[in-house]
Design a protein around this nucleic acid. Structure first.
Length: 291
DNA sequence: GGTAGACCTGGACGC
DNA sequence: GCGTCCAGGTCTACC
């Protein structure tokens, strides 16, 4: 079955899909040009479903294999709206950057939305798996996590959904460390899954949290394995753009952009984007780097 | 508050 | 093929 979902304009599906590397992490699958992507998800009943998203006039077309009841269709629609930020209003950001040569392209290309997973649990796990490793390591760890512990798609069992916190919580550190290859991150992921599964940590509530960003950041930092960079990255995914996710790549880019290749620290990166105020994270994310 | 060292893996490199 | 070095954030212990 298929249906369409409207997006607040301007909207570009390729701009969201290509906003960062998430599309390369299981259980996403996607075209290089960003014109379509697939994702293996689960609906509230526990059923595993493959969805396929393509561009449609004014929004996106959602296709799933087989039929869903009304509740299942609503659930998928809700997930897709969050994943693509279909309801996000970035007009204030566009007005702020229109005159900046390093950012004006954002408006022309309808950039600004960032691809997300359906749950903040999945995005938190993936963010922890980006830390202290090469991107190829993140891809590999995520693939193994889904392959070993995700529930299979009934029509194609080799395709699996991202593991639920409940399922992850029942595994053990040694399996995650050696079989999945998470290394020292294994206890972090296990503790996170158990906290979410037990209800001690309600990550989904952070999507609509009334907390001020500094307080939300402190809450994220209390998760083992989430440090300054990871917290800033998660805030970006939550639509809070007042922190810049400073990693080694950011240091390198800012060094080359404004400091003639001389070594810089976190302070220089933050100072470079300070003028963009509550939009500084987005300004950094979509900056048109010269190098 | 700041800093050093450990954590773990894969890739690059030299032999 | 093997050994060594390095990159990549976060945590913990220590000052």
């Amino acid at each position: 079955m298929e249906w369409t979902l409207p997006a607040r304009q301007p909207f570009s599906l390729p701009a969201v899909v290509r906003s960062h590397g998430w599309i390369r992490l299981a259980p996403f699958s996607g075209e290089e040009d960003g014109t379509a992507f697939g994702y293996i998800t689960r609906v509230e009943t526990g059923e595993v479903v493959a969805m396929h998203i393509t561009a449609a006039p004014g929004g996106v077309r959602v296709t799933v294999d087989g039929d869903l009841d009304a509740a299942g269709q609503d659930d998928i629609s809700h997930q897709v709206r969050w994943m693509l930020g279909l309801d996000q209003d970035l007009s204030e950001f566009y007005d702020a950057v229109r005159a900046e040569p390093g950012l004006a392209h954002i408006v022309e290309r309808a950039q600004g939305r960032i691809l997300r997973s359906p749950t903040l649990f999945e995005d938190t796990v993936k963010t922890i798996l980006t830390t202290n490793t090469a991107w190829s390591g993140t891809i590999r760890m995520t693939e193994r996590l889904v392959d070993r512990l995700g529930d299979p798609l009934p029509s194609a069992p080799s395709h699996r959904a991202f593991p639920t916190p409940e399922h992850l919580a029942t595994t053990d550190e040694d399996t995650l460390r050696r079989d999945v290859g998470l290394g020292y991150r294994a206890p972090y992921i296990l503790a996170l899954a158990r906290a979410v599964a037990s209800g001690a940590l309600d990550l989904e509530a952070y999507k609509t949290s009334p907390l001020a960003t500094p307080d939300l950041r402190r809450a994220l930092l209390s998760i083992k394995g989430v440090g300054d960079y990871a917290a800033a990255n998660l805030l970006m995914l939550l639509g809070r753009y007042d922190w810049v996710p400073v990693d080694s790549w950011a240091l390198k880019m800012v060094s080359q952009e404004w400091h003639d290749g001389q070594p810089v620290g976190r302070a220089e990166v933050e100072a470079a984007f300070e003028p963009w105020g509550r939009w500084k994270g987005l300004a950094y994310w979509f900056w048109n780097w010269k190098s």
